[in-house]
Structures are given as C-alpha cells and as structure tokens.
Design a protein around this nucleic acid. Structure first.
Lengths: 190, 190, 190, 190
DNA sequence: TATGAATGAGATTTCATTCAT
DNA sequence: AATGAATGAAATCTCATTCAT
C-alpha cells in the first residue's frame, strides 16, 4: 500500500512528465493523487523541491539501469554499446517517467532553479560511468584512441539528441535508435 | 528606424531566449521594447502567436545561413560537413537568438501549442536540405551508403544533442563541437 | 449607396441587437461595417452615444409603424387592437432590429446611461399614442371605463411581457401572440 | 455566523441585482463581502457560475413563496389570483434580490450563457405551478375554458411586463399592480 | 499527519478612446 | 473624412503558499 507521500510523488512525476513544470499545478497533483492539497507543502516544502524529488527519483532508476547494463560486458566497446542501448531503451519504456528528466535534467531548457546543482552532480555520475567504459575500451584495444571525457560527452550528446527526436518530434523514425547505435559504433570502434 | 512592432519582436526574442516561455511576461516584453503593454495583443494577437513569430524569425535566419553554407561545396561529404559546422556555429553566434529555437522548436519540451505544425514544417525544410546533401554524397561516392532521411535524422540528432550540451549544461567543453564534427565525419565518410 | 457613417450605424444595430451592449466592441462594429475603427468616435463620439443612436433609429421606425397602424381604425377599440397587433408584428419582423430596443429601452435592464432621458421621452410618445386611442374608445363607447394612462401601462406591460417570452425564452409558443391579443381584448372591450 | 462562501453569494446577489452582470466585478464583490478576491473562483469557479448560483438562490425563495401562496386557495380562480399577487409582491419585497432574476432569468436579455438550461428548467417549474392552478380552475368552473399552458404563458407574460414597468421604467404607477391583477381577472374569470 | 479554505500578487487579455498621418 | 497604431486602465482568472482546524 502506497503512502500519501508516495502517491503525491507518483502523481507529480506523471504530471511533470506530461505537462512540464509551469503547467503542472498543486491542485492537479493533489487531485490526481487523491490527497489533500496541503500535504504537498507539508511533505515536500515547495514546488521546486517536489520537481527535484521527481527528477531524482527517475534518475535513481536510470542509474541503476545503466549500471546493470554495463556489468557483464566482455570488453570496453561492448560495455559502451550496452550503455547506449540501455539509455535509449529506458527512455521509451512506458513506466519510466523518462520525460521528467527531459524536463528537468541539465539538458533541459529550464531556467536554472535552486537545486540545479544536485541534478548536475547526479548526471555527472552517469557521465563518469560512460567515461569509465571508454577508458576500459581504449585500454583493452576495443576502441579507438578517445579522450574519455570528451568521448562520453559526444556519445551522450548523440543519445540526448536521438532521444529528443523520438520523444518530442514528429520525425522520430522507428529505425532511428538502431541507426544511432550503428552510427556510434562506427564512430568509436577500432 | 525600427517600428514598435519590430521592437516588440526583438524584445520578445531576447526574453524568450533567456527566460523561456512561461517566465517571459507581457510586462517584461513591453518594458524592454519601451512600448505600451496593449500593443502586444494589438500586433500579435496573443502570447503564443508572438512566441511563434519569434521562433519563425530566428528560423528564417537559420535556414538562410544553412543554405549559404552548403552552396559552394565540392562534393556531398563536404556539403554535409559544412552544414554541420554552420549549424553549430549559428547556435553560438551571439546575436542569433538561437535559444528561442531551443525553446520552441519541435526538439523542445514545450507542450504542443496551436501552431506547432507551422514550426514542424519549417524544420522539415532544414531536414530536407541535409537529406539532399547526403543524397548527393552517396551519389558522388564521398559518403557511405546511407538512407538519406534516416542519415539526416541521426546527424541532426547529434547536432541537437551537442548544441544542448554546450548551450544548457555545465559540461560543455570547448572541444565538443570539434569532436562532434570529427565523430560525424567518421560515421559517414567513405 | 450607403455612406460609411450609415454603414457603422447598421452594423452597430445588428451587433447590439445580437450581443447586447457590453459584448459589442468597436472592433467588431468597424469590422462588420468594413470601415476604419477611428471613424466610430469620429462620427458618433463614444460608445453610449452610438448605442443611443441605434436605439433611436429603431424607435423612429417603430413609431411610424404604430402611427400608421392606428390611422384608419373605425373606433377606439379597433385602434387599440391594431396598435397591439402592430407592436407584436414589428417585434418579430426580421429586419427591424427590434432587439436593440429590448436592450436599451426603458424596459431593459440596462444600468441607467447618460441619455436614458431621451429614450424615455421617445417611449412616452408611444405610450401617449396608445392612451389617446383608449381615450377615444372610452368616449365612443367601444371600451370599458379605463383610466387612459393606467390602461396604456397595463396593455404595454402585457405586450412587453409577451414579446420577451417569444423573443428571449424557449417557452414562446406560436399561438402566444394570438392569445395575448384575445386576452387584451377580453380585458378592455365593452 | 455566515461563512465566507455565503458572504460572497450575498454580496454577489446585491451587486448583480443593482449593476447587472458586466458591471459587477470581482473586486466589487469581494470588497463588499469583505473577503479575498481569490475566494471567488475558489468557491464558485468563475463569474458565470456565481451569477447562476445567485439566480438559483433567489429563484428557490421565489418558488417557495409561490407554492405557499397557492396552497390554501378555495378554487382555481382564487389560486391563480394568489399566484399573481405573490409574484408581484415578491418582486418588490425589499430583501428578495428580485432584480437578480430580472438580470438572469430566461426573460432577461443576457446572451445565452453556459447554464442557461438549468435556469430554464427551474422556471418551467413555476410555469407548471401556474398551469396546474388554471387546470384546476377550468375543472371547477371558476375559470373560462383556457388551454392551461398557453394561459400560463399569457399570464406570466403579463406579470413579467408589469414587473419590468415598475422595476425598471419611470412610468411605473403605484396602481399598476392592482390594475394588472384586475386586468388578469377580467381576462380569465368565468 | 491531514484537510481544504483563505490569501493576494501577478498573469494574460480586452477595449474605449486618442492621435499622428 | 479616413485610417489604424498606440495607450494603459481594468477585468478575469491562476496559483503557490499559509494557516486554522
């Protein structure tokens, strides 16, 4: 059984994902969660903190998913490709509330909010996870000579773009994710 | 001499670029433009239409810039690379108000608004411009065998992602654009 | 050929009739008339004066119609009945813009406006026209003994009510005007 | 002790009655009620719904008053006359806020608003109450042969007109209500 | 913890009227 | 006479947040 606090977070994630920050109101959240309006500030302080909590909740799942993906890879190249596939898969999995991250990640166009920093740090963990796999791949000879941080930036940028194309635009082709992975592969494989 | 209608558009572009849609108010726009509040609806109807007008204005400049870039290329590969470079350069040129497009393009996370379609169509023109260069490169043997539409999608996705990383996040490295171009080159060159 | 001043009055009558005072705007009027916005104040001064001009224009037609109706009556009773029939007929004749009077006559629920007095006086002329016919009927023995002013008030009240029932409510039966005339007849005939 | 929600309704009834719909503002209502502006939409949703609530509140009192009036009548004719007298009396009783109904009943000149239907239905109850008394009077021989629905329409039209003459115009004579009752009596009594 | 009434600043939008051309 | 850009006050409505219960 879900506590009322959890019900609020769940409703907030759904609504922020669907409508974005400014079109999601306390009233809508409390109605969808089926709890009293006042509980929102009681449990989460204010709107921004709730937004952050929503984002961090999705992000924690995202991190876990990526770490699991890279775990059993035979070499660096394979680890990178698993990372990429997991990234794209997570973003379209129906119950991941991925769009919350589209709305509040450092890659979003939100005006900087108070706890942007906490979000940035969590995303840095993801960046480093990928950079580590690149380092491994360069060491084990499965990747071309890439500076790990820049390489991770380029790859994540590509994933961010592909993801947005599919999630937000009408151009998103069903082949796009496959092509993107092939494209990345060509760009890094030795 | 700038008409008041133009002054409003200019102010709107600056403010939408800087603050996004919902944090840009009529008051801020009219004050920055130095005109009366009521002129906004008089000339543009409502906030959304002004937002659209802002986006289309930037987009028109963007298109012109891309078309000029591909004009003198020796072959398809070179045309594609010029397109990509012009894309990234435009996005960081100081007076382009590029961020307006980050806020209202199909790649943005705006809730669909009324004239989304008009924006979509204009972006399709850009997509087709790139697809044409790919087609040319495949024909002249300077590119690997790519399906032009999917290829254009992948490349634009990569540019979108790189652009967001630089424009919005704290990770944006100064090498990123260069690395992105190299990465694209490796992914498509025969 | 209609002058622009006349076109404005015509448009104003239509719109005031259909939408009432406060939902009729200068913009709508000038657009329907196909002339420039500024001509409205130029020719009519302000909104209230235009409203009054619209009402008085309809009222002048109304008066003429009533006077013509009573002209050839054989006796007072017949004159009264002709008056009543003409009153009701005018109110449903398609091009009379009768509803303007519903909106701005002394029987309307408009908050008193500046030139209410002029409207009141014109309506008094109508009242007196009916009172004269009653006086005649009492004198010639075709009517029961009625105080002409009170009698005119009662009869006009009945017409006002019947008219509103037909023009404004969903209850308006097609027999209502006939029944109303029969009812009046029973109430005054000797 | 009156709740703030009730205070708002009371203030709204007074102001709508006095100034009509469009000249009654949120500011005026909340100031007269002595509560915060935002409570208006909090409790009533929007201006129209508050207007409707005001009308229905007055109408409920009106219905109760009419039902009580017809209760003890000796025959149909007397019941009809009591109905008419109660109708007219209610309309000039100082604390009835009758004018709200003048502004928002189906007999008003309001442009059709959303819940017009609800108002229409409530007025139909009043119409039927009168039609029932006519039916009784025709049956018990105290009235002439009248079709009950049309008869009710004619009588209510007469009351509506008399009421408007007294409430809205400068012609309203103090004898008018008495004369109107006599006039109705002559028109229906056997 | 839980509720939802209460607040009031602020947003968008409307619109009669003025005025330069 | 004719045009429509320009003005700004005022209207309705939203909404995060507070607070008494």
């Amino acid at each position: 059984m879900q506590s009322r606090k959890e019900a609020l977070l769940e409703a907030a994630k759904e609504l922020f994902a669907e409508y974005g920050y400014s079109e999601t109101t306390f009233k809508k959240i409390s109605e969808r969660a089926g709890v009293a309006l006042g509980l929102l500030t009681h449990h989460y302080g204010n709107k921004e903190k709730l937004f952050l909590a929503s984002g961090l909740d999705v992000l924690a799942n995202f991190q876990a998913c990526l770490e699991e993906a890279v775990a059993g890879a035979a070499n660096g190249f394979e680890a990178v490709m698993r990372f990429c596939k997991a990234y794209l898969d997570f973003s379209i999995s129906p119950r991941s509330s991925w769009l919350v991250l589209v709305r509040c990640s450092p890659y979003s166009d939100m005006k900087t909010h108070s706890d942007r920093k906490q979000m940035d740090e969590s995303f840095a963990v993801i960046h480093n996870l990928l950079a580590d796999q690149i380092r491994r791949g360069v060491a084990d000879g499965s990747l071309i000579a890439l500076e790990p941080d820049v390489g991770a930036q380029v790859i994540i940028s590509t994933l961010v773009g592909a993801n947005r194309t599919v999630a937000l635009t009408p151009y998103g082709d069903e082949n796009l994710f496959g092509e993107t992975l092939a494209f990345i592969s060509r760009g890094i494989k030795k």
